[in-house]
């Protein structure tokens, strides 16, 4: 017998699919119960569309945590599509994801991803492990392979704090992905994705200090983003006149994942810009 018959109570009672025990994954449930809501499920037709692209994201570890920072620019060809786009997202208490690539698809992926994490946590009563979270993102990325072939690629950068790590000082983790969903643990302690990533990574290679404290890590991230913006037109530097500053999310054991307030970001960014007035190379 059916658990209930929605025929008699149109639009109100919970449909049978909702009452069927099954996966704790929101994506899996959505795919079976409401496939029309799944992002990117339709087959792509020939031809290409022009869509806004997000650009540079950097991640680096420090003593006691990890941080993720991104510039705010989205570009479409040679145009700036958006000046103040948010590309770094807190996905749960101890993780954050930064996105580069086709903005619309990436935003939808992150939204679904954070619901996925929350859904699992609510149903199971415990959080996913750090590796579980990282693998889930790989699976979602793999789901967009068709889109990537059609030119709508997305490249996330995952940062998380491993609450089960032996050494809380070294519990910050960075996970990188390739476009086919390949997942790689970044052991070097820093990474960057997006169009300006080459320059950001070169800057971080010189600056990164695994024993740095939170403040100098934030400073290093903003410096790296400045370097990326310096040499890559698609990356936006701190825009002091419009008050648009890089967005930074820090993840530590006691605080969890928190976004740096606008004032703090402003003071770091202004500091960096002022210093560069004297020494343009940093």
């Amino acid at each position: 017998m059916e658990p209930s018959s929605p025929r008699n109570f149109p639009g109100q009672a919970l449909p049978p699919a909702y009452l069927t025990p099954g996966s704790s994954s929101f994506t899996d449930f959505l795919r079976s119960a409401a496939p029309e809501l799944m992002p990117g499920y339709s087959e792509h037709s020939e031809g290409r569309v022009e869509a806004p692209h997000g650009t540079t994201i950097v991640a680096l570890t420090f003593r006691g945590g990890v941080l993720l920072a991104g510039d705010r620019r989205a570009t479409m060809g040679n145009l700036i599509a958006q000046r103040d786009m948010e590309k770094v997202y807190v996905t749960d208490d101890y993780s954050a994801v930064g996105i580069a690539g086709t903005a619309g698809i990436a935003l939808e992926m992150v939204r679904l991803y954070s619901i996925e994490l929350e859904h699992y946590e609510k149903l199971e009563g415990v959080r996913l492990s750090l590796d579980g979270k990282a693998n889930k993102l790989a699976t979602m990325l793999r789901g967009n392979l068709q889109g990537a072939i059609a030119g709508l690629a997305v490249l996330p950068l995952f940062a998380g704090y491993d609450t089960e790590a032996d050494d809380p000082e070294r519990a910050g983790r960075i996970v990188t992905y390739d476009i086919t969903g390949g997942r790689y643990n970044e052991t070097g302690g820093y990474h960057a994705v997006g169009s300006g990533s080459v320059f950001a990574k070169s800057a971080l290679k010189k600056r990164h200090d695994p024993d740095a404290d939170l403040d100098s890590a934030i400073r290093n991230a903003v410096e790296a983003l400045y370097d990326a913006a310096d040499d890559d037109t698609a990356t936006g530097g701190p825009d002091l006149s419009r008050r648009i500053y890089p967005s930074v999310v820090t993840i530590t054991g006691p605080e969890g994942a928190v976004r740096l307030s606008e004032e703090q970001a402003a003071s770091v960014a202004e500091d960096v810009v002022n210093r560069r007035r004297e020494i343009p190379g940093g």
Binding site: Y89, V90, D92, Y94, R111, E118, E121, V126, E255, A257
Partner: peptide
Amino acid sequence: PGGDESGAGGDV
């Protein structure tokens, strides 16, 4: 965060 099961930031 960590002391319970609820969210800390989550500004997605």
